Computed example of a mutant assay.
Amino acid sequence: MITATPFDFPYDGRLVPESTALLVIDMQEDFLSPTGYFARKGYDSTPLRAILPTVKRLIAAARAAGLTVVHTRQGYRADMADMTPYETWRRKRAGLDGTDVLLRCGAGFQIVSDIEVAPQDIIVDKTCNGAFTYTDLELVLRSRGITHLLFAGCTTDVCVHSTLREACDRNFQCLTIADACASGDRYAHEAALHMVTVEDGVFGALADSAAVVTALSRLANGAS
């Protein structure tokens, strides 16, 4: 089991690699680059880049233990045919008209080069904050028999939390890895982590990366 709050994960003590996936949410240039979308909105991308070593360690531990690794990317079609009038208005209001920021044709859409995406990894592209909305993520997970999800990535308060809530409503067992998530807003980050644990774990459990890596290493080495 993984030492976590408010209960150790999984609740029944059955951490099975084949049934578990690590979700790495939106570790893209548009969010981590000093010239990407996040920076254009006036946020500091430093906290997001700071979690890169931790996320890389988690990915390596997950692969070694036999977990599925899923990366998500947020962005719209190059022709913006999937963008509603409200989203178009927000894009213009943010000063992004005429740019390729948050478009799948842009360099910022790509996962940062610091993170190696292996051939066996799964990539899910999305337009919404939640990775289950208008995507085949649930189909992929169900097809593989995955019932348990570990969450890392950015931002804690928006895309990570939106996906976490969607996963909980679909009855996946969820663990958020606190120091492997980040936001440009410290208060929002801390509040999002706190919300995981309210009502005795309404959105699952919360752990740090050291506890997760320790448990995954034991799995990789064949220990119970």
Results as ranks from 00 to 15, higher is better:
V112G: 11
T176F: 05
A65M: 08
R93G: 00
P85Q: 04
A62D: 02
P34C: 08
L32G: 09
E29I: 02
T84E: 02
T68L: 11
E87Q: 14
S162H: 15
I115K: 13
Q120K: 12
S183A: 10
D114Y: 06
T156L: 08
E190A: 04
L141C: 06
V160I: 06
T156S: 15
D200R: 13
R14I: 04
P85K: 12
W89N: 01
V117C: 09
Y187M: 05
V70C: 06
L22E: 03
F38W: 12
V140C: 03
D8G: 10
T133Y: 11
T155K: 06
L137R: 07
P10Y: 15
T35Q: 10
V69N: 10
N129T: 05
C174F: 03
L23S: 11
A215K: 12
L150T: 05
P47R: 14
E116S: 11
A207L: 06
M195R: 14
G95A: 09
V124P: 02
P47S: 15
D185Y: 05
A152Y: 12
D30C: 03
A21Y: 11
V196W: 08
A188G: 04
I51D: 00
E138V: 05
H148D: 06
H148R: 15
A107R: 15
D121E: 04
C181D: 01
L48A: 15
L96V: 01
V196Q: 05
R218V: 00
V124L: 08
K56G: 02
A78Y: 10
S224L: 13
D100A: 09
D26E: 05
L96R: 04
T68P: 00
R77V: 00
I177T: 01
T5Q: 02
L164S: 09
P6Y: 15
S143A: 12
G130F: 12
D179Y: 09
R73D: 02
V101D: 10
C159Y: 12
C168I: 12
H161Q: 14
G222D: 03
R73W: 09
G204I: 06
Y43W: 11
R77T: 01
L48E: 04
D125R: 11
A205P: 00
S19N: 15
M1C: 00
Q110N: 08
A60C: 01
Y76V: 02
T135K: 06
R218L: 01
T197Q: 13
L139A: 12
A178G: 05
G75V: 09
N171E: 10
G130T: 14
L96K: 07
C168P: 00
G201A: 10
V140Q: 06
Y43K: 13
G13T: 14
W89G: 02
S209N: 05
G130D: 15
L103R: 10
K92R: 13
T88A: 15
L67A: 05
A65I: 01
Q120W: 01
D30P: 01
A215P: 03
V202T: 09
V212C: 07
H161M: 10
N221S: 13
T156F: 13
T46M: 00
R144G: 14
L137G: 03
A191E: 05
S45A: 11
F9K: 14
A205V: 02
A81F: 13
